[in-house]
Design a protein around this nucleic acid. Sequence first.
DNA 1: TTCGTCATGTAATGGGTTACATGATTAC
DNA 2: GTAATCATGTAACCCATTACATGACGAA
Lengths: 182, 182
Amino acid sequence: MATRSSALEFAVLGLLHDSPMHGYELRKHLNALMGWGRVWSYGSLYPMLKSLTKSGLIEASVDPTVKRNRIVYTLTAAGKEYFADLVEETGPHSWEDGNFDIRFAFFSKTPTRTRLRVLEGRRRRLEEVLARAEDPIRRSTKKRFDKYTAELQRHGLESVEREVQWLTQMIEAEKRDADASP
Amino acid sequence: MATRSSALEFAVLGLLHDSPMHGYELRKHLNALMGWGRVWSYGSLYPMLKSLTKSGLIEASVDPTVKRNRIVYTLTAAGKEYFADLVEETGPHSWEDGNFDIRFAFFSKTPTRTRLRVLEGRRRRLEEVLARAEDPIRRSTKKRFDKYTAELQRHGLESVEREVQWLTQMIEAEKRDADASP
DNA sequence: TTCGTCATGTAATGGGTTACATGATTAC
DNA sequence: GTAATCATGTAACCCATTACATGACGAA
């Protein structure tokens, strides 16, 4: 049974799902995947690889084809199982809020049903944010904001609205796909 | 001389700049200010208030008008000075990247020149992100992404582009204001 | 031969959260 | 009288970063 794991752990397992890699390579892929935001340092990556090895989710081996000091990590059967469990997690207090981007990045390894749960869950929570912000009771009692604070608020809500729209598109696409294929 | 402080510290000082408050109240304002994202817990707020008190940047006092167990904090002269220093910080390795939102939230307490530096700095960094992403050399050597990863990438870049546009608007508004007033 | 980048790691620190503990006050 | 919210705090943990340290390999 998989319980809340860190973003990095999830990403490492997800990447190793495709093919074995060594740490340095892994980090490059990691940062390419997430691009703009989110950059992980070696100071967190290498200890994570050690810890995952110790718990048997990945396996370390030295690549014999190169002289270089490379330690290649492979996902074990237990690791695959664990990752599959993580991917299914969508409970209300799950870690999906702050790590939606990573979850989305590994949607190709996520069952369609779970994909929909994740997308709809996020949309629901964002809509709650919008509802709270537009609540007339709150608005009237709320302290007056200065020019910049108000603009920050407006811009933030606009971003949230846009993401809701995007999520809706993604959800519709998922549903079309689900209908099209058995 | 003020060096890198935490987001919470900055926000607390900024809020107390307006008026004295007690912890509970402070947290509500904090979370209203940032709204959607960023929520701080008491577990970080109260220790921060203690530490700021110890370093003399804020002053604790018991509100005599209420029986309630309230400790009201006031920004000291040293605290004002320190905050002013923090607000000026815009160096390349400053903390402005991950905390742009908070800096923006307190723009009304930031000199116009510094405001422009912060806005333009952020725009420049975001434009670098776009440039890297659109670099044809990188694009050709880059590993093929699956459907979802590609969409994540696309959506991320779109958001960045939109923020660049927004920043440009903000910058223009600042310049207009600067021209209009002495 | 020197510079960039590949490659792996550790120790100290940071900036928080979670869960817990306590109790007063207000609204129903 | 009881539930919600006001109000303050602490201890343990978490997930990461920063700065440092080491060294091999390839290209100019």
